[in-house]
Each structure stands twice: as structure tokens, then as C-alpha cells.
């Protein structure tokens, strides 16, 4: 029997899972939509991965990352629960040891990670707003009556991207409506949108950081060829998009699970596991904390949300 490790990255929009072996080779992978119910998405994901996993492997470690990492960590009894920045960096460095900059644009957040000699030296994340992320692009796609997947192709056709405000989604949207009504071509507007995502990212997240190559671009938006084009144009450097760029977080956390293995063997059968959460408001003090209790097989395993630490 050979050992393998499961890494799950539960993002706001999509849920990604990979199983790797001791040499970091991907044995099984899957990418599905989260659809605002991470537990159901992960059940589905793990079932698919279990079917894809060739016989002769045993799972020796599970890691979770992404915004639902804590919750899913409890569901899967993961041995590693880590934030997505660390996971992305570890995944990327494993495949590109000399990487210096990671650009990442996801569904609702975007980040930049600077690396030197395989160690993170600085990073930044978008602060309050989700402007210039995947969510922005898909809502604009809906407005234009297109599938966001086709955005890249459209943008590449344009030689003359329209100028769209890069600062704020609300302004960008009114700019977009105005330009559309003024009669600009769809491809030029889409190209302008892609460019505004890049400008927004460099202004809000990049903020004067020195972007040195090799540059790796990841996250869902990295599948958009228009955005890649404008990154390269504005940065004046080549931007590498790994084939499995959307899986990098999952791969990173699987590697961490391997490094932190305890010898315990995991089962991927979740069907018998009963898992639910219960939210309630505590009225013991004026804070009225919204608490969440997490039950696994009808036994309370954790609860969070309390300010005072009573729960």
C-alpha cells in the first residue's frame, strides 16, 4: 500500500481538492462550485476523489485551506488547517523554486505574495472591498449577457480597450453602462474591464511593491487571457500561468498535510458522518455574539463566534 495525502481548498466560489503521493505527483484532482454550502460541496468533492483514487493507496494526511478551512477541518478531521496564503506559497514554491512574485485573484479576494529564496518576504491582501476580483468580473459578465469564461477571448480581439475607472466597482459599473450606451463595441468594453481589473489590483494590492520575475499568476481569474495580457503589458514582464494554477492552494495544503503526518490513516467515506451546525445569539451580555455550534455525529466538536470565550 502506498501513502497519499488529501488537500482541500474551500473558496467562496469554488472548492478544489487534490490527492498527492509522496513525490508530490497529483493522483486525483477535482474542481467544483461551492454554491454557498461548503459542507455539501466537500462531501461531493471527497466522494468524487474517492472514486478517482486508484486502488493501492491509503490516505495518511488531510489538510484544509480557504475561507471555510476551519469548518471543513472539523468535518474531515484534518491534521493541518492553514490559511490560503501559506498554502499557495508552499504549493507554488514546490513547482517553481525560483518564483519571486505570486499574483492571485480569486472569487472575492486578491493577494500578492513576494518570495525570496523560497520564503515569503511580504504579502498583501485586498482590504475592505472586493473590487477587481472574480466576483466583479462575473457580475459584469451577467450584465453584458455573456459567460465569464468567454471574457478572455473577447478581450484579446480588441485593439482599443475603453477606459474604465479602476478604483471602485460601483464607479466601474456606471462607467461601463455609460460606455455601452454610448455605442462602444462589446469587445472593447470587455478588454477595458480586464484592464481595469489589472489596474485595480496593482493600485490596491500591489501598492508600489517591487514586482520581480519570475511572476506566477494564479486563482480563478488567471484563466482569463485578457487579464494575463494586460498584466504582461503593464508590468513589461512575462507572466506564467501554471496549468494547475487553480489547484495550487489545494496542492500546497496537501504538501503540508504530508509534512505533518501523524501516522493516522484516514477514510474518505463521509456518508455515515452526520455533520451539522447550529447558530444562535447569546444574550448574556450587550455584545449579543452570534455563535455557531458544530456537531459531528450529534456530538458537539467546536463552537466559535464568542467574544468572551465562554463557548
Amino acid at each position: 500500500m502506498k501513502d497519499c495525502y488529501l488537500g482541500v481548498d474551500i473558496g467562496s466560489i469554488s472548492t478544489k481538492g487534490v490527492i498527492i503521493d509522496d513525490n508530490n505527483n497529483i493522483i486525483a484532482e477535482e474542481y467544483i462550485w461551492t454554491e454557498a454550502s461548503p459542507v455539501e460541496a466537500v462531501r461531493k468533492l471527497v466522494k468524487i476523489l474517492d472514486e478517482k483514487l486508484p486502488s493501492g493507496y491509503v490516505v495518511k494526511g488531510i489538510g484544509t485551506t480557504g475561507s471555510a478551512r476551519k469548518l471543513i477541518g472539523l468535518l474531515l478531521k484534518a491534521n493541518v488547517v492553514k490559511n490560503e496564503i501559506t498554502a499557495h506559497a508552499i504549493g507554488t514554491v514546490t513547482f517553481y523554486p525560483d518564483v519571486r512574485t505570486i499574483l492571485e485573484i480569486g472569487g472575492q479576494d486578491s493577494k500578492i505574495i513576494l518570495i525570496k529564496n523560497g520564503i515569503i518576504t511580504n504579502y498583501a491582501m485586498n482590504t475592505l472591498c472586493a473590487a477587481g476580483t472574480g466576483a466583479f468580473l462575473s457580475s459584469q459578465a451577467k450584465r453584458l449577457g455573456l459567460d465569464v469564461k468567454d471574457f478572455g477571448e473577447y478581450a484579446l480581439k480588441s485593439d482599443n480597450p475603453v477606459k474604465i475607472a479602476a478604483r471602485c466597482t460601483v464607479f466601474a459599473e456606471s462607467d461601463l453602462v455609460h460606455k455601452a450606451q454610448a455605442g462602444y463595441e462589446k469587445k472593447d468594453i470587455i478588454a477595458g474591464l480586464c484592464k481595469s481589473v489589472v489596474m485595480n489590483y496593482l493600485n490596491n494590492v500591489g501598492k508600489g511593491k517591487k514586482i520581480v520575475g519570475p511572476i506566477i499568476f494564479q486563482g480563478g481569474v488567471s484563466k482569463n487571457k485578457g487579464v494575463i495580457k494586460y498584466f504582461e503589458e503593464i508590468l513589461g514582464q512575462k507572466v506564467i500561468v501554471p496549468e494547475n494554477s487553480h489547484l495550487m492552494g489545494a496542492i500546497g495544503i496537501a504538501i503540508l498535510a504530508r509534512k505533518n503526518k501523524t501516522g493516522h490513516t484516514y477514510s474518505l467515506e463521509l456518508e455515515d458522518t452526520e455533520f451539522h451546525t447550529k447558530g444562535f445569539e447569546c444574550n448574556r451580555c450587550a455584545n449579543n455574539c452570534e455563535l455557531l455550534k458544530i456537531y459531528r455525529n450529534n456530538k458537539i466538536v467546536d463552537s466559535w463566534g464568542s467574544k468572551c470565550g465562554k463557548y
Binding site: 490559511n83 490560503e84 501559506t86
Partner: peptide, 10 residues
């Protein structure tokens, strides 16, 4: 928490 955790890790 995500931001703080990753900052501390780094």
C-alpha cells in the same frame, strides 16, 4: 484571522 495567521506564519 486569515490575514493575521498568514502574517505570523511568514
Amino acid at each position: 484571522e486569515t490575514r493575521l495567521e498568514s502574517f505570523i506564519d511568514m
